[in-house]
Simulated scan of single mutants.
Amino acid sequence: MTGRRRWSTDEILDAAAELLRTSDADSFSVRKLAAVLGTDSSSLYRHFRSKTELLRAVADRILAAAMDDYRPQGDWKQRITALALHVREAFGQQPELAAVWGRYASSGTGSRLAMEEVLHALRTSGLPDEQIPAQYHRITILIAALIASDAGISTITPAEYEQGRELFRVAVLGADPERFPTVAHFARDLRPLGVDRRAAFEQLLAAQLAHIETTI
């Protein structure tokens, strides 16, 4: 009788990433992944101790692949901006994993590569060493939050997106000027969160980097 196939760690991560393309982190389970692979959960727990550890590893592979393609250029602000946009693009192709990364982060190779680049860029900025860890932390939180936010928008269907835009227009343009006078004043100029997100991403990051620059 032939035993069940032994899956490698990379094969398990590939299958998990594919499963996450059609489901979110909350509905994902080791049992579902085991069923896809035609094995039992216990065999997967030999590679990963928990669902969270598995999700972290899957997200980190996306980050590691993005870092492999990244080539630092320009000054410290340009490098951090380019890195952020590069990682955003990588996770944008698999938004469910962007949400996973934003929620769980990781301590894998991809995470360390990104950490090394941001810390190195900050060190070349002239910022005193004692201030670098705190500024690194703020930059990382901002980037992760923006990327995870993008993921939330990109996972909805076109129909859901249009429905949301219509609800936004009704809520804003139909706001009672007596109860919401400021909303009513700006109503025709306000836009839904899903509009022009790339520009907002770059502007928010640029503002944080400019703030750092003023402290140097």
Rank of each mutant, 00 (worst) to 15 (best):
L33N: 09
H211I: 05
A98P: 05
A121N: 02
E166Y: 00
D24Q: 06
Y161S: 14
Q73C: 02
A148D: 05
V30S: 08
H185I: 05
S50L: 05
T109Y: 09
L190W: 10
G108E: 01
D14W: 14
G92T: 03
E89C: 04
Q94K: 07
Y104C: 01
E53M: 06
L55P: 01
F186C: 08
T182R: 14
L113R: 11
T22C: 15
D176L: 04
A25P: 00
K77W: 02
I156M: 12
L37P: 02
L13C: 10
A206W: 09
V30Q: 12
P192D: 06
T140K: 10
L205T: 03
S149G: 13
Q93M: 01
L209Q: 02
G194T: 09
T124C: 01
E166P: 04
A25Q: 15
R49W: 11
P72Y: 03
E130Q: 06
V118A: 04
E117L: 05
E130T: 05
R138L: 14
L209E: 09
A134F: 05
A105F: 15
S125Q: 00
T215G: 01
G3S: 12
Q73E: 03
E53Q: 13
R21A: 12
L83K: 06
D196T: 01
D129I: 04
R198S: 15
S50T: 02
L44R: 00
A199I: 10
I12K: 03
R112I: 00
L63V: 06
Y70N: 07
V118E: 04
S106W: 05
A187I: 08
